[in-house]
């Protein structure tokens, strides 16, 4: 029987898992333990609905509704002094929950505190852009769209950031294969030589360690040199190794170890 591989997550999986092993969790603390956070949380809950809130590794994590995100960012930057959006992106939960979890990592320079806003986004939904409040979201949102395919509304320049504009699919999705998909292996051939050259050139070699020992174009055959592009598939010429100094060449001399000096210090 063929081994079963899940189609919705083609990333590498642990080869073996103990049936009885229960993973511990990163400890989560109550918000009342921290004075500044509890104050922030209080004023935050007055204005917005919070689904879940806790402190995880010194960060206040607030799980909110995705429709409030622009007002929340406005509120955080204006009222609560979380004046920098350090990082934002999404986590792919398409297989488990059919959607993404977005996170916004905030920093308050005056309070020396970090806060994380999280919200869940269904696969077909779109999130409102927060570029009007934080300019750093400009590229982060583009990257998020490029890498995960999260749709963003009202972004001033929504284009792919890292991958080419005409790239198929979003590489950081769990469904995207590690070696690139079918479209990726033909991308450069199509782009440079045209689709009609596919038969001549073949798909891109995506194994970085691949070596063709008969290739006399790209690989040097040290000590067994043959002219460039010689076909040695049928017949490999015997090239005995010889050293230059043996034929009393003028350029090279044999190293005499007794005449060499080892320096104690750098000159």
């Amino acid at each position: 029987m063929r081994k079963y591989t899940p189609k919705d997550n083609v990333q590498r999986q642990a080869p073996f898992s103990d049936r009885f092993f229960v993973s511990p969790s990163v400890p989560r603390f109550d918000i009342s333990n921290d004075e500044i956070f509890s104050k922030d949380y209080e004023s935050f809950t007055k204005a917005f609905k919070v689904k879940d809130a806790y402190i995880e590794h010194t960060h206040l994590v607030l799980n909110v509704d995705k429709n409030d995100i622009v007002e929340i960012m406005n509120f955080l930057s204006k009222e609560l002094e979380y004046d920098m959006l350090i990082e934002m992106s999404a986590i792919d939960y398409l297989a488990a929950k059919d959607g993404y979890e977005l996170f916004y990592e905030m920093l308050s320079l005056s309070k020396h505190k970090r806060l994380r806003i999280k919200c869940f986004l269904n696969k077909d939904d779109a999130v409102e852009s927060i570029t009007s409040i934080f300019d750093s979201a400009n590229w982060s949102e583009r990257e998020m769209y490029d890498m995960l395919g999260v749709k963003v509304l009202n972004h001033p320049n929504m284009k792919r950031l890292i991958m080419p504009d005409d790239w198929y699919d979003h590489p950081l999705r769990k469904t995207y294969p590690l070696q690139g998909d079918e479209a990726a292996s033909w991308y450069e051939v199509d782009k440079i030589f045209g689709k009609e050259a596919r038969d001549v050139i073949g798909p891109e070699q995506r194994d970085p360690a691949a070596i063709d020992r008969y290739d006399t174009e790209r690989f040097a055959r040290l000590g067994h040199e043959v002219p460039y592009q010689t076909d040695i598939r049928e017949f490999e010429p015997i090239t005995p190794i010889s050293y230059q100094e043996e034929d009393s060449s003028k350029i090279m001399k044999k190293l005499k170890p007794e005449e060499s000096v080892v320096l104690k210090r750098r000159r």
Binding site: S23, P24, V26, H57, E105
Partner: peptide, 23 residues
């Protein structure tokens, strides 16, 4: 490989270029 606890961390350090963070 090691199996760390379930959870999320964001840790930032001051690299020569600025804030380098791993989430």
């Amino acid at each position: 490989g090691m199996r760390p606890p379930v959870g999320e961390v964001y840790v930032a350090t001051e690299s020569p270029k600025g804030e380098l963070g791993y989430f």
